[in-house]
Design a protein around this nucleic acid. Structure first.
Lengths: 336, 336
DNA sequence: ATCCTCGGATCAAACGATTGCTCAACTCAT
DNA sequence: ATGAGTTGAGCAATCGTTTGATCCGAGGAT
């Protein structure tokens, strides 16, 4: 690989001069002619600054890690894109890591944070992860921004979960549904709490009663949705429509409905909060409320950059674009 | 962060002594007592070697990049896990990147390879990518191992695609099918070629005719499967079963069958080559041939380690475990 | 002529870890 | 007692970049 000293030699200047030219130091006093010669030389031998040398000197790697529960889950597609785009825009490289590997005491944790491989972390804690343990492990070791959930002493970014759930309910009410169930996430999940809150608000706003018998708190997995549907659909007065707190759970709801001989949307309408591309390929394609996850990713990186720069802890909500209903084929007017 | 000199100071030894103890240099002559003191000191102040310092000196980052066409595609789940596990086992960190960002001349390419951020690449070229351009761009800049497809001058690892397709056909033949279609990938895709080859072999082995009218070469996307099914199912004598060259395409086949009023598996059996978790959640759940993708990932990293160590170019096939049929609900005996 | 200033460019010291070489002290054989 | 060999440990150079300090000459002001 070409080094800076090669560039300098070829341009007939000192290494320091070359460095100043290439890093565009405005305070440097160098003739335009010299600058041009250095730039030429760099171009000709295809110079690229050595990462390690620079990182050592600057104590900065320009790498940020995105830590999510499951890297290959479709739910994270948009988020990942958002984080990556913003990272690249800021001259950073994004490193993807699984939360699973990022246990406080774990190997990866040490390598990424302890060895100084990353400048900061965008972290989505696993549902059920202990916020205090996480916060303690991170300590002041590395700037962190969490998404969907706040940690003590770290900035966080969330999306309008309540409003999204509310939009879902409103859609069903507009179709004429009155008994609307809610297949929620774990009670320990802040997003699940907020989505449930939106569900309640929407019912209240429409003058419909809140019936705890129509609400479950199983989780965000496909199996959880299945279990939730199994429970809710065998109620004495079953709901005519169901909100699933997430796409994966909605897939489970679909499967269970089918298993019980119910047709969607004829016998049961289903709406999922949180859109993902998989929702288009289920049967029937799922009506969803799309959340601004791409923007969540971008905003998180922005917040992280602030944190790295030593800015104060801040908690933000990504409100634009707002949640919007994507109507597909899993919702219809109630049967009778 | 604690530095090596801190450890040395605390243990009352020189930096070099501390370094030798901690890196376990066997040739170093140091008393056991000194070693113990250094280890203690390191433990007490929570020392972890600084990544940049070490990378600079050793000209090695212990980072390998996995470059796939679409990070969040379910198809890559297993591969990713395999690569990561093997990387961690070898003391490396895995960096995930999208092929999209890794265009030969691109930004990411420069940052990862040009700046020396990674020791090597495990690369799955996008379908339709120009192998020559890629090889040229990589040049001798960085060790590379490709998967699914070979590049000039680089090691590669593949899975037994032909055999997998063959297993799929054999399953359908065993059920009694005789008109079996094949919704393949692009003709430019080596995996698609191999899977088609296996399809042909299986037919030949069973004494069934190979009918080009039952074969399409659309691609691996859901829309491609949809288009393929649309074409094949409107033939004068439509197939009673279809092999989809990949899970995503199979999802499209399922959707299109439904759209044409055909029930799966009653009117049409469908088998996908290449299993993924999404196959369990389609309707009906897809019968698949599972490929050893986890092992593919591990093997690729192994091959990459060889390449980094300066070993010769080698081309391997991951034959164990062999492809195995995972029977779900999308296949049945033919209708009449 | 002297003192300043300023443009143009180089020197040299970091950053943190690794490693070849040197050095002191001690043991042991001659 | 002298030299060789061994053991235990430190010195200092090095990896590639950045950056504060320094140096040199030319021109301007006094």
């Amino acid at each position: 690989m070409a080094k800076l000293s090669d560039v300098a030699a070829r341009a007939g200047v000192s290494v320091s001069a070359a460095s100043r030219v290439l890093s565009g130091d405005p305070a440097a006093r160098l003739s335009e002619e010299t600058r041009e010669r250095v730039r030429q030389a760099a171009l000709e031998i295809g110079y690229q600054p050595n990462f390690a040398g620079r990182a050592l000197k600057l104590a900065r790697t320009d790498v940020i890690a995105l830590v999510v529960p499951d890297v290959t889950n479709a739910l994270f597609t948009e988020l990942t894109r958002g984080v990556e785009d913003e990272a690249v825009a800021r001259g950073c490289v994004m490193l993807l890591a699984r939360s699973e590997d990022m246990q406080p005491g774990g190997e990866m944790f040490g390598r990424l944070v302890g060895e100084g491989r990353v400048d900061g972390l965008v972290l989505q804690p696993r549902d059920g992860a202990d916020p205090k343990a996480l916060a303690a492990a991170l300590g002041k070791r590395s700037p962190v921004v969490t998404i969907h959930q706040a940690l003590p002493d770290a900035s966080s970014v969330v999306v309008p979960d309540a409003l999204a759930a509310r939009r879902a309910v409103e859609h069903l009410i507009a179709l004429g549904h009155e008994r609307i169930g809610f297949a929620g996430g774990l009670t320990s999940s802040p997003t699940a709490q907020r989505r449930a809150e939106g569900y309640r608000e929407a019912l209240r706003a429409a003058g419909l009663p809140y019936d705890p018998a129509l609400v479950t708190w199983r989780g965000y997995q496909e199996a959880d949705g299945r279990a939730a549907a199994a429970e809710l659909l065998t109620r004495r007065e079953p709901p005519s429509a169901l909100i699933a707190a997430n796409v994966n759970a909605a897939v489970g709801v679909l499967a269970q409905s089918r298993a019980q001989g119910l047709a969607v949307p004829e016998d049961l309408s289903v709406v999922a909060v949180h859109d993902a591309w998989t929702a288009e390929h289920t049967w029937p394609p799922l009506t969803c409320v799309r959340l601004p996850l791409y923007e969540l990713g971008r905003t998180a990186v922005e917040a992280l950059a602030n944190a790295i720069a030593g800015g104060p802890v801040a908690h933000r909500s990504v409100d634009s674009p707002g949640p919007v209903l994507v109507e597909r084929s899993s919702t219809a007017r109630p049967h009778r």
